[in-house]
Amino acid sequence: MNLYQSLGHLVLGSRLRRLSEAFLAEINRAYQTAGIDFDASWFPVFYLLSKNDALSIKELSEQIEVSHPAASQLITNLKKRGLVSTDTCSDDGRRQLVTLTAEGRELLKQVIPVWDAISLSMADLVAKDETAKQLLPAISALENTFRQTKLADNIVEKLNTNLKPAGND
Rank of each mutant, 00 (worst) to 15 (best):
A22S: 13
F23G: 05
F23Q: 15
F23P: 00
F23T: 13
L24M: 15
L24Q: 15
L24T: 14
A25M: 12
A25T: 12
E26L: 14
E26G: 15
E26Y: 10
I27G: 05
I27Y: 12
I27C: 14
N28K: 05
N28Q: 05
N28Y: 05
N28S: 08
R29C: 10
R29P: 01
R29D: 13
R29S: 14
R29G: 13
R29K: 13
R29Q: 14
A30V: 14
A30M: 14
Y31T: 11
Y31Q: 09
Y31R: 09
Y31C: 13
Y31F: 15
Q32M: 11
Q32H: 12
Q32I: 11
T33C: 12
T33P: 01
T33S: 15
A34Y: 05
A34H: 11
A34V: 08
A34P: 04
A34L: 11
A34M: 10
A34D: 13
G35V: 09
G35N: 08
G35Q: 08
G35P: 06
G35Y: 09
I36P: 03
D37L: 07
D37I: 03
D37T: 04
D37F: 02
D37E: 12
D37Q: 10
F38I: 05
F38K: 00
F38R: 01
D39Y: 07
D39C: 09
D39H: 11
D39M: 07
D39I: 04
A40Q: 11
S41C: 08
W42P: 01
W42S: 07
F43R: 12
F43A: 12
P44V: 07
P44H: 07
P44N: 06
P44M: 07
V45D: 00
V45F: 06
V45P: 00
V45G: 01
F46W: 03
F46V: 02
F46K: 00
Y47F: 14
Y47H: 12
Y47W: 11
L48C: 05
L48Q: 10
L49G: 00
L49P: 00
L49W: 01
L49K: 00
L49N: 03
L49V: 03
S50Y: 02
K51F: 09
K51M: 13
K51Q: 15
N52K: 09
N52D: 10
D53N: 10
D53G: 08
D53K: 10
A54I: 01
A54L: 04
L55S: 00
L55F: 04
I57H: 00
I57G: 00
I57D: 01
I57V: 14
K58E: 13
E59W: 02
L60K: 03
L60Q: 02
S61R: 04
S61P: 01
S61A: 14
S61C: 05
E62W: 02
E62G: 04
E62Q: 12
Q63R: 15
Q63P: 00
Q63H: 08
Q63C: 03
Q63G: 02
